[in-house]
Design a binder for these strands. Structure first.
Length: 583
RNA sequence: GGGGACGUGGUGCAGCCUGGUUUAGCAUGCCGGUCUGUCACACCGGUGGUCGCGGGUUCAAAUCCCGUCGUCCCCGCCA
């Protein structure tokens, strides 16, 4: 080794030791007769003292090797902020291993951050920042905890192919042209879904993999074209078995990484309950504001707008915003109105209990508001926001309203961790685009068999799936299901999705064939590692926990990918470009 | 595919609404100098910008208009 110690480990007990450190020059405090150099590596920082007889042109971010003696700092110069703050290394020899040839676009030691595209273009500099470095290390610790926990339970990590077959249904695939079979393409996996099921057919019994997945869809703060899943599959299990396994694992991760104790058992909410209560299938419950159905109070209203909606099967629902009366200005009401109208509703109703009641359409609704106030025990200073319309639209509109209010006014309530399961998602949802029902989770999900019998010839949207989502702080962190392991049932589900025999055979023939040869009941889940780590690190974008992420247009500012390729490469693949201009 | 915000020395921002006393300002970095106990060292001096790009309006554009590119956020999309 070019060093005897790291920059984070020297303490008072090391005083008088002769040591060699290596690292980056974080900053230099030149006092004329003496220079203090902060030497930085992954492990921390150590102050190096250069006496006046060093004639050395040292630049920030140079990589240097320092030989010297550990000294106790004078009592009044101890730095309590620094783990190594009680000592310093008095340099005897300094060797510059690599000096920057020009000024850096930014310095890791500066408190002010440049914009994100600058950080991404020079990610190797960004990674030198403690904050960034710590997040990457946290990610590693999460992955390690997962591996430890699952391995101890007998799970086997198995690698599945990246060059695989395009799976229809679901996201757009990234394609990879085959040179040996020109005109054909591999697809990068959206997830190892079918392979892990085949591993169950293969008797692996308990599988996991921390695996990259690829989806060619538009990006978001929590979505990258390549992302990492903690992929899990188990044989001979019920839904409850999977949930308990994941609860144990997530608890273990939080304990190991953050020393946080999550509940022994996570809450289990039905999909319908979530939609009715929060207007979202992944609500952040920390901000409260649960919906209340107030339809009955408005049934006999003389306010025709609402009365008509209720008479035509509509509902009136609302929620209470605590201590919001003083903020409930006309402008704020208009903002809320805009959100609600985007969701196809006429507008909002609201009232607040200030010194006296204020609100919308008070002339018509004062009496009703009085009743509602009592029923929901509204306090002085609270605001009650309500909308009227078709149930699904009301949920959606209130859900968006609730989220917006939470983000802009109650962000301070988003502390700690709110972890729970959402169960019983609908098996199918109608796709306007395709004019048929498609699987809400994926087509290998085991439907609720009673529901299937009852609705397979009727309203498919009423069939529930044996699926589950893990929600943390308003993010969908995991999603899974008990799978179909029976060929006939799988065909039935494909049939309900109006896939032709031909399509089924081409797309999923190998899975159905596998099921012919003895398939165990099985189920599993995939957790988004990026999202999980982002939540643990308390950052709002998964880019902050990925070493080399892409921008919103899928570009890597560091490498310049994606880019054009040579004519030669295209010729080998027998590919001709017919559009685009490479920019 | 749609909506919104942003783009000004290396970096972060102000100026733009209301065009001209602006020779584009501040902070930070960088360079030089002084300084032996600093820790975001301090102080003094200096360096650095075709105001993303293209077009238009105007006597005059960083500022107004149109287009375009880039970044971020959101809707659609993401089984």
């Amino acid at each position: 080794m070019l060093r005897t110690h790291t920059c984070g480990e020297l303490r008072l007990s090391d005083v008088n030791k002769k040591v060699v450190l290596a690292g980056w020059v974080d900053r230099i405090r030149d006092l004329g007769g003496v220079k203090f150099v902060m030497l930085r590596d992954r492990y921390g920082q150590t102050q190096i003292v250069l006496s006046r007889n060093f004639d050395l042109d040292l630049k920030r971010e140079s990589v240097v090797r320092v030989e010297g003696v550990v000294r106790e700092r004078p009592k009044d110069t101890v730095n309590r902020e620094l783990a190594t703050g009680e000592i310093e290394v008095f340099a005897e020899r300094v060797e510059v291993l690599s000096a920057p040839e020009k000024d850096l676009p930014f310095y890791p030691g500066e408190p002010n951050l440049p914009s994100e595209d600058v950080r991404l273009k020079y990610r190797y500099i960004d990674l030198r920042r403690k904050e960034m470095m710590d997040r990457i290390i946290t990610r590693h610790r999460v992955a390690q905890a997962v591996r430890q926990y699952l391995s101890a339970l007998g799970f086997i990590e198995v690698e599945t192919p990246f060059l695989t077959k395009s799976t229809p249904e679901g996201a757009r695939d990234f394609l990879v042209p085959s040179r040996l079979k020109p005109g054909t393409f591999y697809a990068l996996p959206q997830s190892p879904q079918l392979f892990k099921q085949l591993l169950m057919v293969g008797g692996l019994d308990r599988y996991f993999q921390i695996v990259r997945c690829f989806r060619d869809e538009d990006l978001r703060a929590d979505r990258q074209p390549e992302f990492t899943q903690i992929d899990i599959e188990m044989s001979f299990v019920t839904r409850e078995d999977v949930l308990e396994t994941v609860e144990g694992m997530v608890r273990y991760v939080f304990k190991q990484v953050l020393d946080v104790d999550l509940p022994e058992k996570f809450d289990r909410l039905s999909y319908q309950y979530c939609m009715d209560t929060y207007g979202s299938d992944k609500p952040d419950r920390r901000i409260g504001m649960e919906f209340v159905n107030l339809t009955e109070y408005f049934r006999n209203s003389d306010y025709n707008v609402v009365k008509n909606i209720v008479e035509n099967g509509g509902v009136v629902k609302g929620f209470v915003v605590n201590n919001f009366a003083s903020k409930m200005s006309r402008k704020v009401a208009e903002e809320f109105e805009t959100i609600v109208k985007k969701n196809g509703l006429g507008g909002i109703l609201w009232f607040a209990l200030d010194n006296e009641m204020k609100g919308s359409a008070l002339k018509h609704l004062k009496n009703i508001y009085d009743e509602v106030s009592k029923a929901i025990r509204i306090q002085h200073g609270d605001v009650c926001l309500m909308v009227a319309g078709k149930p699904a639209e009301v949920n959606a509109a209130l859900g968006e309203l609730r989220k917006a209010i939470g983000d802009t006014h109650f962000a301070h309530m988003k502390a700690g961790f709110d972890v729970f399961w959402v169960l019983d998602f609908p098996m199918f949802e109608y796709s306007e685009e395709e004019g048929r029902y498609v699987a809400q989770h994926h087509p290998f999900t085991m439907p609720n068999l009673e529901d299937l019998e009852r609705y397979k010839d009727g309203d498919l949207s009423k069939i529930r799936a044996q699926s589950y989502d893990l929600v943390i702080n308003g993010y969908e962190v995991g999603s899974g299901s008990i799978r179909i392991h029976n060929r006939d049932l799988q065909r039935e589900v494909f049939r309900l999705m109006r896939l032709s025999e031909e399509e089924i055979k081409i797309k999923f023939g190998f899975l159905l064939e596998a099921f012919q040869y003895g398939a165990p009941p099985h189920g599993g889940i995939a957790l988004g590692l990026d999202r999980l780590v982002a939540i643990i690190c308390n950052v709002s974008s998964i880019r902050e926990v990925i070493a080399f992420p892409k921008t919103a247009t899928g570009v890597c500012p560091l490498t310049g990918a994606p880019d054009v390729v040579s004519e030669q490469q295209l010729r080998e693949l027998k590919i001709r470009i017919t559009g685009g201009n490479g920019t």
